[in-house]
Amino acid sequence: MGRTMIQTEKLIYEYERRDEEGNVVGTSRAIDRVDLEAVEGQFIAILGHNGSGKSTLAKHMNAILVPTGGTMWVDGRNTKELEELWNVRQSAGMVFQNPDNQIIGTVVEEDVGFGPENLGVPTDEIWKRVEESLKAVGMISYRHHSPNKLSGGQKQRVAIAGVVAMEPKCIVLDEPTAMLDPVGRKEVLKTVQKLREKKGVTVILITHYMEEVIDADKIYVMDHGHIVMEGTPKEIFSRVDELKSYRLDVPQVTLLADELKKRGLAIPEGILRKEELVNYLCQLD
């Protein structure tokens, strides 16, 4: 096991609910005593339905939000400490949901250069990083294009390149595929996988698409601000009924395998891939 990249201890985030006049009527807990750990180089997935607090949790990893209770460490730094703020933001890059609202530049390469510019990286080094990160996401041939003319998946890859150019140790993706079509979704996930293999960055993927997380090292399932399940994909997906109770859609193959098992076929739990199921089915007499 490598170094711990992200760790939370009894993380709590509360916000004040206000009535129409702006008076405080109470507090709500978006995140409630969450304990989570990600080791360097791991692929961690956080699953949850809308309003489960998963995006709020993601924003803590980048110190956009600061916990109201408990602690969050990013690469050994406490996000509550103000002087560490920029270091935290550099070590944990963040990709958001809406591709249009996170691209600042009017030309692809200008946008990728935005992060390094903010970090005060010397000019030659910026260009090197821009080129490298655009290559890493396979968008180098679009470097002079306007982001407005790209597809959703391409825009998201540019956004990822923008984060990669800051050379973070960890990339947090907050529902990066929610606004994309299936082709774009695949594009983005493939890019993330490739980055992980090549650069060894820690990936934290927040999503509600179960298909995207079958390669994860560890999955956390969130509901109403709590972590309700955690484990490897196999462990998680073998608890189909529990997942359904958190309003999460189980991948079709897993669902089929589960139904077949319930009807008495001798199939193991937690089947994630089509080939796997086919294999087991062929072994039956």
Partner: peptide
């Protein structure tokens, strides 16, 4: 959008 963008800019250390 402005809100989202401001957050994205901050996240990229602006």
């Amino acid at each position: 959008r402005a809100n989202d963008l401001a957050m994205a800019m901050e996240a990229r250390c602006y």
